[in-house]
């Protein structure tokens, strides 16, 4: 499944970058994040209760940030499994200053979903993925603003 889109955050690029790299901010912004722990190799172990409305599942996974070019772009690699099956995703996140104090975050990636969600959630999957990604960026935007950019 291809996931792509963009989201505009009302904050300077550096501030957005910082939040994206900060485990505590990430943990607060990730929808349904119950735990986010940094590992020795720079990756994170995450526990998420994620979904849309009543459709949710518990997932444990690994989040890796690769090839970071501060403050422009990085690759995000996610793998997790849980009650709804498994998910492996990789994508590119790009930050562009589109105006003073305005940052556009563009994301494009490919997610491979397996197990329950893949076989019974086909109809709703894309819309759900979009909504979850949207929630994340909204929360991230709030995060940046509440921390005073």
């Amino acid at each position: 499944m291809k996931i792509e889109g963009s989201y505009t955050v009302q904050a300077p690029r550096d501030a957005v970058w910082q939040r994206l790299m900060d485990p505590a901010s990430l943990a607060r912004a990730l929808p349904g994040c119950e735990k986010l722990e940094p590992n020795a190799d720079g990756s994170y172990t995450a526990q998420l209760n994620v979904g849309v409305a009543a459709i949710r599942g518990n997932y444990t996974g690994r989040i890796e940030i690769l090839d970071a070019v501060r403050p422009e772009q990085y690759r995000l690699k996610i793998s997790g499994k849980g009650t709804g099956g498994f998910l492996n995703g990789e994508g590119l996140i790009m930050l562009a200053e589109t105006g003073p104090g305005t940052t556009e975050v563009r994301y494009s990636g490919d997610a491979q979903v397996g197990g329950l969600i893949a076989s019974v959630g086909q109809r709703l999957m894309q819309a759900a993925a979009r909504q979850i990604v949207g929630e994340f960026f909204q929360a991230l935007g709030r995060e940046v603003q509440s921390q005073g950019g």
């Binding site: 459709i55 599942g57 009650t83 709804g84 329950l116 969600i117």
Partner: peptide, 13 residues
Amino acid sequence: SLIPMMKLRLAAP
């Protein structure tokens, strides 16, 4: 709507 989702275990209230 709800019961089929529960049976599929997509929803588990």
